[in-house]
Design a protein around this nucleic acid. Structure first.
Length: 871
RNA sequence: GCGGAUGUAGCGAAGUGGUCAAACGUGCUGGCUUCAGGAGCCAGUUGCUUAGUGCAUUCGCAGGUUCGAAUCCUGCCAUCCGCACCA
């Protein structure tokens, strides 16, 4: 088979007939299946992408066959730094670079045979798209959700721009891994902190991987505690301190303030230590923030020469500044006590007093929750009791209150780069900061700019900077920062519902129909970046009255990476296996099949030639199977296997266990190879089941079977689930078990005597009986006849009978049904079971009543027990 | 330190209280077929043993619950990921 030709053939047919175009109206239930859209980097598609998208495509195709109206779109996250860096380096305009890359990516994606609705394609760098980024920005601005402030921010010198907190990893830039510095700059922020509580709370509602949910919770970092106001001695100044351990209040012997805290300057103004403190602050602050945060960093501090009053003890305690206190957590001031390891270290170094106030139940020193002493009226209380009481007491004194603190910071969205959405703000001397009204949007990115690699090209483009105030029409200047590209990806899933609409960002009716996304698929690298921002956007737009749901992605699946030689594929390591290469070598269906088969879709996999060979062989076997002569009738065994195959494959896809589904499909090919009687009907159903996994080849098979239209538009097969008497079913299961053993014994041991078989079976039965009886009692209404048969079965090796065991299992005797049925009825059940077994196994089954065995032992063991013999 | 996961043949990976631990794939060993093969078929791949059956051991380690545990509970150990001087 020429896999490349087949793939091309069917891709063309699908596309010609717009087979995957999605309608916005349908009587079918909707299913929004979405993959994180790719960044068009110009390096093309590698197997990591192919795996990711194949998983989504398999689900989409399956859901379509199951009768869902499936929205399965694709687009490009097209703004971003690499395009701009290419412009500086290779003198290609970012627009050109990006369009080229998208063109290449689009072609590659189509060659993978992914069933996207390409009519809905979008690219975030097009003005028709980013216009709405700007629209949302102005709405956020009006509502106070977007604001500008001067703050110390993360600056990446190599990217020449600021970064959000989420984009700093280990003190390094998430993109270029360059060292991040701290700068004081005026920047635009989105007020994501307003949603901290809701973002945290709603994590519980999500059908997301635990890992991702934990990371989100962790990032939001809620901690409940107390803000205590420490009065500066001999003044009315208050120093607010956040603590989670207010039970150690009476242990506080000094305060420590972050050096860059604005109150520091105020405290020392005019004091004799002023100069010394300023020098210290300058030195510490100049140190890079992320070096300073290193755990093994030597703790350094300086006494300010001032004192505060501990509201617990009313004692005068010294105020220090130190490098280990973080400005951006809590209030930037900590109360230092003897029950914190860091504070103790610091106190030791500078000879500060310490005072213990906690001990454990057994009188030992402890830093954990314990029993208070030396704590005034709270002595003797346990920490858990003391905390709320101290909070109350402090509140009544006006010296503080219960507070909740979050680690989450506001989202810094300004970027000093060209290739992004211009922030739609104008600075007017008269009117101040003015947002651009909707009718003047989009503020287009000027194309005639110079890429020098120094500074923001927009800031150097006067024709862009100089404008008129939208209010008063007097000369004004534009904001030259662009938006973080994560703004683009925070709402693209809404745009897919109406991608060409020029009047609104998204058609409310259509969004109401399609959203939220039923299945989102993507890598774990966006655990706190994109996923948190998108959640925030959804909630913010809801509060602007534009959406009526709280969470954008109901279910999330993290696919694993594709490794080569144990490492993630990357350009720099030179271990990229490209889509093109694989398509040439073995065909895209085989590659897809391999990646879905080799491990669960959530695990990392290694790309190996040997592994792919397995899929090649399976494909060859499939070809043989589909070329076998076909009859009218089908082997009964095949029919039964097919029925259970349908059930299993359906179940596996539903639970994202695509690897297991393929295992079942492989096993069925084996069975077909060994059988002679196969009807066309069986192969048709088989082709349907294969279709989501190997879409092109399955179409080819379908055609070979003489079927019209497409396999991918057919209905998913239904398993034949006949309702049967549960008692009968049970008898059948037991007999099936019997039959298997008898077969084993007879074929392997070549033993003819039934008594020997009985012995063998009886031994094997013991443990099975427990299970069966247990299940029987749980699941069957009237299992008397079978139970009786079971209970009469002696278990000779252990000298036990079922009768002895059953009461142990069931305390409630009443649950054991009465045995009203006699021997004759019992045989009748076996007779019925026999008939069904014959169907099932396609062989002759005879019921034999044991008589006249020569072996006395066996006779004793199996008195008159019906057995089944297979021929 | 906090949080999340994972631990089963040489490797990848099934099995999550009971028919059988190791399906399926790959690798390796032997045999058959072939001019040849990076092709196909058959057998084997924890140990002892058999003409065939069988017996013992085994799911990171140690306990516990159960008639019965890879599976449930407790405690350790190892690996991976995220956060971290978070007060």
């Amino acid at each position: 088979m020429d896999h490349r030709a087949i793939a091309a053939k069917w891709q063309e047919k699908w596309s010609k007939l717009n087979l995957f175009r999605t309608k916005d109206k349908s009587k079918k239930p909707k299913f929004y299946n979405l993959e994180m859209f790719p960044y068009p980097s110009g390096y093309g598609l590698h197997m990591g992408h192919v795996r990711n998208f194949s998983i989504g495509d398999t689900v989409a195709r399956y859901k379509r066959m199951r009768g869902f109206n499936v929205l399965y779109p694709m687009g490009f996250d097209a703004f971003g730094l690499p395009a701009e860096n290419a412009a500086i380096k290779d003198k290609i305009h970012p627009k050109e670079y990006t369009e080229k890359a998208m063109e290449g990516l689009r072609k590659s994606l189509k060659r993978v045979g992914l069933s996207y609705d390409w009519k809905r394609e979008l690219a975030t760098c097009h003005p028709e798209y980013y216009k709405w980024n700007q629209y949302f920005f102005t709405k956020f601005f009006e509502k106070g959700l977007a604001y500008k402030k001067k703050a110390p921010i993360n600056w990446c010198p190599s990217c020449g721009t600021v970064l959000a907190n989420e984009q700093v990893v280990d003190g390094k830039c998430w993109r270029c891994e360059g060292k991040v510095e701290v700068k004081e700059l005026e920047q635009w922020f989105f007020k994501i902190t307003d949603y901290a509580e809701e973002l945290l709370k709603d994590v519980e509602k999500l059908a997301w991987p635990d890992r991702i949910k934990a990371m989100q919770r962790n990032w939001i970092g809620k901690s409940e505690g107390t803000t205590v106001q420490f009065k500066v001695a001999e003044t009315n100044k208050l120093l607010p301190v956040f603590t989670t351990r207010v039970d150690t209040l009476f242990s506080v012997t000094f305060l420590v303030i972050a050096p860059e805290h604005p109150l520091v300057a105020e405290l020392i103004r005019g004091a004799q230590k002023e100069k010394e403190v300023q020098d210290f602050v300058r030195r510490v602050v100049l140190e890079e923030k992320f070096d300073r945060a290193a755990q093994d960093k030597e703790k350094e501090g300086l006494f300010l020469g001032k004192y505060a009053i501990n509201p617990g003890t009313n004692e005068k305690i010294p105020i220090w500044i130190a490098n280990f206190v973080l400005m951006d957590y809590g209030t930037g001031i900590v109360m230092a006590d003897a029950h914190d390891a860091r504070d103790r270290l610091f106190a030791k170094k500078y000879n500060l007093p310490l005072k213990k106030v906690l001990k454990s139940e057994d009188g030992q020193d402890t830093d954990e929750y314990g029993i208070l002493y030396n704590s005034g009226e709270f002595s003797g209380l346990r920490s858990e009791e003391a905390i709320p009481k101290i909070q109350e007491w402090i509140k009544s004194k006006g010296a503080g209150e219960r507070t909740v603190n979050y680690k989450l910071r506001d989202w810094l969205v300004s970027r000093q780069r060209y290739w992004g959405t211009p922030i739609p703000i104008v600075y007017c001397q008269k009117c101040g900061t003015v947002s651009v009204p909707e009718k003047e949007l989009p503020v287009k990115l000027p194309e005639q700019v110079e890429f020098t690699g120094k500074g923001n090209p927009l800031a150097n483009t006067l024709s862009f900077v100089n404008t008129k105030c939208p209010n008063c029409k007097s000369p004004a200047k534009r904001e030259t920062d662009t938006m973080d590209t994560f703004v683009d990806s925070s709402w693209y899933y809404l745009r897919y519902c109406s991608p060409r609409n020029k009047k609104v960002a998204f058609d409310a009716e259509k969004v109401k129909y399609w959203l939220p996304v039923d299945q989102y698929i993507g890598g774990a690298e966006h655990a706190v970046l994109h996923l948190l921002y998108a959640r925030f956007f959804t909630k913010a737009l809801r509060d602007l009255g534009m959406l009526n749901f709280d969470e954008p992605f109901t279910a999330l699946f993290n696919q694993g990476m594709v490794l080569k030689n144990g490492e993630k594929m990357s350009k720099s390591k030179g271990n990229i296996v490209s889509q093109e290469e694989v398509e040439q070598k073995c065909g895209i269906d085989i590659a897809r099949l391999f990646m879905l088969f080799v491990a669960g879709p959530g695990k990392d996999i290694e790309w190996t030639e040997e592994g792919v060979q397995g899929s090649v062989r399976f494909m060859q076997r499939l070809e043989c199977v589909f070329e076998k002569p076909r009859g009218e009738k089908t082997d009964k065994v095949v029919e039964s296997l097919l029925n259970s195959l349908v059930k299993k494959v359906t179940l596996c896809i539903e639970s994202f266990e695509l690897n297991k589904a393929i295992v079942e499909l492989m096993a069925f090919a084996d069975a077909l190879e060994k059988r002679e009687l196969i009807s066309a009907k069986v192969l048709e159903v088989y082709a349907l089941l294969l279709a989501p996994f190997i879409p092109h080849i399955a179409e080819e098979f379908w055609e070979k079977l003489g079927k019209k239209r497409f396999v991918c538009t057919q209905k998913w097969p239904k398993a034949n689930d006949k309702k049967i008497n549960p008692a009968l079913e049970y008898a059948e299961k037991i007999i099936a078990l019997f039959v298997k053993d008898v077969q084993d014994v007879m074929t392997l041991a070549k033993v003819q005597k039934l008594s020997e078989i009985s012995l063998f079976v009886a031994q094997k039965w013991k443990h099975r009986l427990y299970a069966q009886v247990k299940k029987l009692l749980d699941s069957t209404r009237n299992p008397g006849e079978i139970l009786k048969a079971l209970m009469q079965t002696p278990l000779r090796k252990q000298g036990e009978t079922v009768t002895k065991i059953v009461p142990k299992l069931v305390q409630d005797e009443s649950r054991i049904p009465e045995f009203v049925l006699g021997q004759r009825k019992e045989l009748q059940i076996f007779e019925q079971a026999k008939q069904r077994l014959e169907k099932l196994f396609g062989c002759t089954v005879r019921i034999i009543k044991e008589q006249d065995s020569n072996e006395p032992k066996a006779k004793q063991a199996m008195p008159g027990k019906p057995a089944i013999l297979v021929k």
